[in-house]
């Protein structure tokens, strides 16, 4: 993301809006500027802010007078008054940032294959995770910290030797140079993204082992992990995962419940 210095009036509205804290007023030019190394191309500033199309010279003059008189104008905080935020054309490897950070980007346009699975949300239709199995979503970077792929690789390399299967329809998987060792393409290791999710499946009895490795590696990371673990329930709606997690000392109370109302359409007979 870039900011058009010809339009920017240094109102600072966009600064707190950026989840990465990548926008600042450059004192040398008195205009908002994006630290491109920290920007993850999430488009939050560009798309989330409302826009006015005011004349920059006029706005600067009014702001200058008010500032001289020590009067604080109290505008709407989510508005760029001059439409100064300007997306830049993204190429590889930087486009990886947008592919992982902007939930609205059409993924075909980024060259990254796989948008992540539907996780547990359609498990009643896909049967992706069965009784006796656990599906993990290990998410890096949220909330509001971001992650570079070299940190993700530390985790995927530690997980690869375990009795797990990485989910193949997952964008991080598509960027692994060798899924057997968990290594990720060299050319994107320094790219920073808002969030990336590693998905894997394992047998229920291996859940404690996976969680232990995740916990150990997490201590060595410069980012935050959000851990989700899913399973299929039995005919009464109970499951073996919940008591197992409690036995292991995990505290949890929130989650996503699939009510089992989805189905594939019945095959049409000839």
């Amino acid at each position: 993301m870039q900011i058009d210095h010809g339009k920017c009036v240094a109102c600072s509205n966009c600064i707190p809006v950026c989840p990465m804290g990548a926008i600042y007023i450059d004192p040398a030019v008195n205009r908002a500027t994006v630290n491109l190394d920290e920007c993850v191309e999430c488009f939050t500033c560009y798309r989330g802010m409302s826009k006015e199309h005011l004349n920059p010279t006029l706005v600067r003059t009014i702001r200058g007078v008010l500032k001289y008189l020590r009067i604080r104008f109290d505008p709407e905080p989510d508005v760029c008054p001059t439409d100064a935020l300007t997306p830049q054309a993204l190429t590889w490897p930087r486009i990886v940032r947008q592919a992982f950070s902007d939930p609205l980007v059409p993924h075909e346009s980024t060259g990254i294959h796989g948008r992540g699975t539907e996780e547990v949300k359609t498990n009643d239709v896909t049967g992706r995770v069965n009784e006796g199995e656990a599906g993990f979503t290990i998410e890096f970077g949220r909330p509001g910290v971001g992650v570079r792929f070299r940190d993700i690789q530390k985790m995927t390399m530690a997980l690869a030797p375990l009795p797990i299967t990485f989910e193949k329809k997952n964008p991080v998987f598509s960027l692994m140079s060798d899924p057997a060792t968990g290594t990720i393409r060299e050319d994107i290791l320094n790219e920073k993204v808002l969030s990336a999710i590693v998905e894997l499946k394992t047998a229920l009895e291996h859940v404690p082992q996976v969680l232990q490795v995740v916990e150990e590696v997490a201590q060595d990371l410069e980012t935050i992990l959000s851990i989700g673990v899913a399973t299929r329930c039995d005919g009464q709606g109970d499951n073996a995962l919940e008591p197992m997690l409690k036995r292991e000392g995990h505290e949890f109370y929130r989650g996503k419940t699939n009510l089992g109302l989805g189905r594939r359409p019945a095959a049409v007979s000839a």
């Binding site: 996780e119 547990v120 498990n123 009643d124 995770v129 599906g135 979503t137 969680l211 995740v214 916990e215 997490a218 935050i224 992990l225 959000s226 851990i227 989700g228 673990v229 899913a230 399973t231 299929r232 329930c233 709606g237 499951n239 995962l241 919940e242 997690l245 995990h250 505290e251 949890f252 929130r254 989650g255 996503k256 419940t257 699939n258 009510l259 089992g260």
Partner: peptide, 11 residues
Amino acid sequence: RHSVEYSLGFQ
């Protein structure tokens, strides 16, 4: 319920 995913929080 058919399936459930638990949030184990942040690390």
